[in-house]
Simulated scan of single mutants.
Amino acid sequence: MIVHLHLVRHGQTTFNRYNRLQGWSNAPLTDKGLADADKAGDKLRDIDFAAAYCSDTTRAQTTAQRILDINEQNGHKRPELHADMHFREQYYGYFEGQDMNVAWWAAGAPHGAPTYNAIIEQYGLGATKDFLKEADPFHDAESDEEYWQRIEGGYALIANNQALHDGDHVLQISHGNTLLSLMHRFAPEGYDLSERPANGSVTCFDFDTAQPIDRAFTVASYNQ
């Protein structure tokens, strides 16, 4: 069974505006963030969604509800919204709410990579998670392994949804680093992943629910 996932990055929050790490933190949407959500809703107004998922953060739930409002106003049946912690952004532990440049310097500088992009270029995206956990004095930040174990649990929830059928469309409200992580793991060559997904952007995957997770996703579009 293949379902079509429409992953929307939530609208801009105050932490996005202030360039602060925002994983499990719960900063509210700005006025621009509400407009981001409405813009995504307008893009998706003609899609008939069979299901909708988001993380249990306020920014994701608010974005989802505004998209579903627009979708319903355009004549579509409104699916139940499933909010679950498995769909949360990467957990940054001690560095939650920290200025991003300061946090990534703390993570990468001991390894000779003082910025987020430098860590990726020298060590790969997974190292951004492992280095941040290492730099966290409490070691509460998620490692790459811990992160993927949780994220894969979220997609197991979708795969096990008995109400879904082959060809159905599913809305999922996602997060910036999670979208990048999915793209780094599953995208073929040719995508510019130096460009972060914008708030309110739409990324589409075909999800083969019968396949093991490493072969389950095909990228249809990124950061639209």
Rank of each mutant, 00 (worst) to 15 (best):
A198G: 12
N199K: 02
R185K: 13
Q211F: 11
V202Q: 00
A159P: 09
E195G: 05
N199S: 05
D166G: 08
G190I: 06
A210Q: 15
G176R: 07
A187I: 06
T209L: 15
A159I: 11
T203E: 09
G190S: 07
P197L: 07
N161G: 12
P212T: 02
I213A: 09
N199D: 03
F205R: 01
P188E: 07
N160P: 06
A198I: 11
M183D: 05
F207G: 01
L164E: 06
V170Y: 03
C204E: 15
H175K: 05
Y191R: 01
R215D: 14
M183L: 13
S174W: 05
V170M: 04
Q172L: 15
D208K: 00
V170L: 04
Q162Y: 12
G176V: 13
N161I: 07
G190A: 07
T203M: 09
R215I: 06
A187S: 12
A187Q: 08
A198P: 06
S174T: 09
G190Q: 07
A159E: 13
S194D: 10
N160E: 14
L179F: 07
L180V: 15
D168L: 09
N161H: 15
T209H: 09
F205V: 02
Y191S: 01
G200S: 02
N161P: 15
L193W: 11
L182A: 05
G200I: 00
H165Y: 09
G200Y: 01
